[in-house]
């Protein structure tokens, strides 16, 4: 049984499951959290923004396994349960960083743009988002790395991924299985982290080394 689980075919399948889970949930989280973060950073939502920021800060202390478990109680077993849980959990760092990044843009810069007659939408796309991008990308990086880790737990709700190897390895006490699962998931997390770190650093060099 261990040999069958360790076939290239099976590892390929689990890799695909793992990556797809992370990819779908992360992209969905970016697509929801970034616009939401932009929205609550607008001046007319200033009060809502501060409240949401506090809620997010508390929500972020909730462990990922708890979110996964809660979604299990609603959606039962399956791939969707895992994707929804990952999505919701990775919303938080992206939302928080988008909000922090945009509200952290120097007031003077934004006011200069307003004063020169830039329409609000262009201020957002040309000034605020580029300047906030290192912080936003840092949030995405955190989210993706956490997602790779949480996705190993998806095996408990029957959504596959590298967690299958680890949990089966523990259950039937087969070291090769266990190690393969551990090492592959760790590698995936480290690779994602490094790729996004490079992207983040590029933005920082380009934009943020500005100290007046």
């Amino acid at each position: 049984m261990a040999a069958r689980l360790l076939s290239y075919e099976n590892i390929g399948l689990l890799t695909k499951q793992h990556i797809i889970m992370v990819l779908i949930s992360s992209i969905a989280a970016i697509l929801t959290a970034v616009p939401l973060g932009i929205l609550i950073s607008r001046e007319r939502f200033a009060r809502v923004g501060a409240i949401i920021e506090n809620i997010v800060n508390v929500a972020q202390t909730v462990p990922s396994i708890a979110i996964l478990a809660l979604f299990f109680t609603i959606l039962g077993l399956g791939f969707n349960t895992a994707v929804f849980a990952l999505w919701l959990y990775s919303l938080l760092p992206i939302l928080r960083n988008t909000y922090a990044g945009i509200t952290g843009v120097s007031k003077g810069v934004v006011e200069a743009a307003q004063g020169m007659g830039m329409p609000p939408l262009r201020i957002l796309t040309l000034i605020e988002l580029p300047l906030a991008s290192p912080v936003i990308i840092a949030g995405i990086r955190t989210a993706v790395v956490v997602n790779v880790g949480t996705a190993t737990l998806a095996t408990f709700v029957g959504a596959g991924g590298y967690g299958d190897l680890i949990v089966t390895g523990i259950a039937i006490q087969r070291l090769p299985l266990l190690l393969t699962g551990c090492i592959l998931s760790a590698l995936l997390a480290i690779i994602c982290d490094h790729i996004l770190a490079v992207v983040e650093k590029n933005r920082v060099v380009e934009y943020q080394e500005v100290k007046y």
């Binding site: 880790g149 998931s185 760790a186």
Partner: peptide, 11 residues
């Protein structure tokens, strides 16, 4: 920190 926790427990 980046290693998934389930993996580290397993290791």
């Amino acid at each position: 920190m980046t290693i998934p926790s389930l993996a580290l427990f397993g290791l």
